[in-house]
Design a protein around this nucleic acid. Sequence first.
DNA 1: CTGACTGCAAACCCTTTGCAGACCG
DNA 2: CGGTCTGCAAAGGGTTTGCAGTCAG
Lengths: 170, 170
Amino acid sequence: MKVSPDDVARRVAQFRATAKDAGLKLTHQRLEIFREVASSLAHPDAETVFRAVHARLPTVSLDTVYRTLWMLNDLGLISTLGPRRESVRFDANPEEHHHYVCVRCGMAMDFESAALPALRLPDAVRELGSVLSTHIEVRGICEHCARKTEDKTVSRFAFRPKGRKGQSHG
Amino acid sequence: MKVSPDDVARRVAQFRATAKDAGLKLTHQRLEIFREVASSLAHPDAETVFRAVHARLPTVSLDTVYRTLWMLNDLGLISTLGPRRESVRFDANPEEHHHYVCVRCGMAMDFESAALPALRLPDAVRELGSVLSTHIEVRGICEHCARKTEDKTVSRFAFRPKGRKGQSHG
DNA sequence: CTGACTGCAAACCCTTTGCAGACCG
DNA sequence: CGGTCTGCAAAGGGTTTGCAGTCAG
């Protein structure tokens, strides 16, 4: 399944605008990479995007794909699946629970929701497959991080993922 | 913040039972590693668990920690944060949406929920920090995987994480 | 006792980075 | 043209694995 050409065109246009706004150059590579993610519904990883783009633009390199994807992420045009790109984290809480994750430092806290169990999943979900677990993931900036006003400017326009290892004040 | 000693003891007892059931040996290392994750609320990564356990049991190695954590995961005693341990995946869907993720092959599908926006987050969440996004993650076994009845036995008791790269039929 | 388990160290894979040349604006 | 961006290749960091010795049952 694919995103409709119209939607893709719309998103590409938005990318052009956003990039222009931010003073970014619209290279072939960036355009093709964006077009690729924007038209996929499969939540591809960098490698998959790379392969697809590479077929059309044989000179792109995998690292450009990475840089571009993180750039798009910083611009707010795409996002990532899962809390953040770092090591696997384990959870020994046996109760049904949900997660609040700080996008700045990676801190993860459990919370419980009385309302969720009552929430009926759309039928569309049942058609996808069996359901083993359902949980909510809330992302935000934790109290602690909000207080240290320094490094507030995140890394927008740095185009390099922010440093790893952030869970310093767990 | 820590899990209460009582709860930890209870969980350790359950681990003993489950391990016995499965015919697994209860080594110092396993016990200490389990005790460590079971008493933490911070969703530690392997390295963090390793450091803590290492302080008490200077001979453990990081790889034993990994093996044990995956074993515990396979036994269903702990779980992981985020969809699965693999490369970062990108999502270009600009609409508010949620994810269904197949735990077997990694396939991820979007779905929409009319009900979620109405769901009130517990006040406890607001105390943790600001809320940037809220989304549901449903895990299950997708239709496609359910049909191929082979390799159904997942890797329970293999104690080595199942092979990477699974999104073959996306 | 014996096979399951561990520690070690090397391998692996994904991702990031420094640099010199290419290209957008 | 100039600074931004790219491709390259090598480094980095987390995770996995083969092997020989160790230990729980």
